[in-house]
Design a protein around this nucleic acid. Structure first.
Lengths: 223, 223
DNA sequence: GAGGAATGTGACTGTTTAGTCATCTTTTAA
DNA sequence: TTAAAAGATGACTAAACAGTCACATTCCTC
């Protein structure tokens, strides 16, 4: 149970390494072929491990996938919790904004450090939550709920235009995830450093050069 | 080959019906379990057809999936082509806007009419383009290219703020697809009729109540 | 209405797969 | 040092699967 003790026996050490090897092999294959198409045989072959050994460490493929996302999920929960605490304690509009900026600043390095897992999440995200994809759906639910709560908080404090909360939350989440997917897939998105700022600005201020009342748009489509 | 002639023989008629039954059965199962997890046996059982019959109509599962998207792809190509023609011919800023509004007006009923296929597309969209998912990836490429071209046109005419084209295109696409996914998954998004207008307004004018210079945001995160 | 072509069928084949297990090796702890 | 526990291994089993095929049935054409 003690993780980093030098007193860790050879047993525990190999155990940890084997598990890491199996997870890494699975991750690579999942990204290459999609979770459902990857077999245990492929995983153990790639990890250079006997088939029986796989079952010593994981009950099945679903448990391997779950173990891939455990850290990520709990890390994100901590970060979101922290942000929500900040939001509750904030009194000024500036403090609120700072909380959101801090959220992005904490989330970004985590997502980049765990790029492969994030890509796997984005890739399997919307598929039916059956079998090995159940744990991925868990992360989806987490993100949706948190995005919704954060949006609600922003709305409550009059920071945002009065769109329905779900609409705002899904638009932000959808745009962000789409960009993240492109980025992690190797798509060239220009200067990476300015990307978060560009996204924020685009979402907050809009694409348009001049403000357009929604009524105008309606009348255009009907007249 | 002649589709709607009353002169169509019993053969051709049953053939068409069988194909439709197999496609429908496949579609339902794909949505339920994900494309890769569905077997030919399940499909023929659901369609109440012998296994051998399946192979009389489709070479394999990939061809069934492809046939599911053929109409949708060509319809969308026509609509996008028409929009691009309008954009080229447009001289005024109003004509440009009209072209975009018309695009939305043509796309919306198609997407709603083919809801199941669209949902399947959204669901399998980002998964690796191997095997049966190749034809889905084809639609993804189509949409990305067209979105990019439309964005470029809008930028060229000074309609949008000067973000990188890819950024604008992906943000719009990502947000739209996320909302569409929620909608088609049965998520409650409020008044459906005002949804397109709300989305357009949100993306064009932004979420924020007051304009924010991007420099301010940067300094907040660093100071 | 006859001959031929297309269609329907499900048993069958060969392959792939998940999961097990007997057996051997390594590590631990006393 | 040694006994027991944990780990490693790959052959093995049973089930699932894609794709085929011989044969029966239906439809079309002349």
């Amino acid at each position: 149970m003690n993780a980093k003790q030098p007193e860790e026996g050879k047993r525990a050490q190999t155990r940890r390494r084997r598990i890491e090897e199996l997870k890494e092999a699975g991750l690579v294959l999942f990204l290459e072929k999609g979770i459902e198409s990857v077999t245990i045989d492929e995983i153990v072959q790639r990890a250079s491990v006997a088939k029986g050994s796989f079952y010593r460490y994981f009950r099945d493929k679903a448990e391997l996938v779950q173990s891939l996302f455990e850290e990520l999920v709990s890390s994100m929960e901590v970060i979101f919790d922290r942000c929500e605490t900040r939001l509750e304690e904030a009194s000024s509009s500036e403090a609120l904004q700072e909380a959101y900026v801090a959220l992005a600043a904490e989330l970004a390095p985590l997502l980049l450090e765990r790029a492969s897992r994030v890509l796997l999440y984005l890739q399997e995200n919307r598929a039916p939550a059956v079998g090995a994809r159940e744990s991925i759906h868990q992360l989806t639910t987490l993100l949706n709920q948190r995005a919704l709560r954060l949006t609600r908080a922003a709305h409550t404090h009059g920071l945002l235009r009065p769109y329905p909360h779900k609409l705002s939350a899904y638009v932000v989440l959808g745009a962000t995830e789409r960009l993240l997917f492109a980025l992690l897939s190797g798509d060239d998105l220009g200067d990476l450093l300015s990307l978060p700022d560009q996204l924020t600005s685009l979402i907050l201020n809009g694409l348009h050069t001049e403000e357009i009342a929604s009524d105008e748009t309606i009348e255009k489509s009907e007249g």
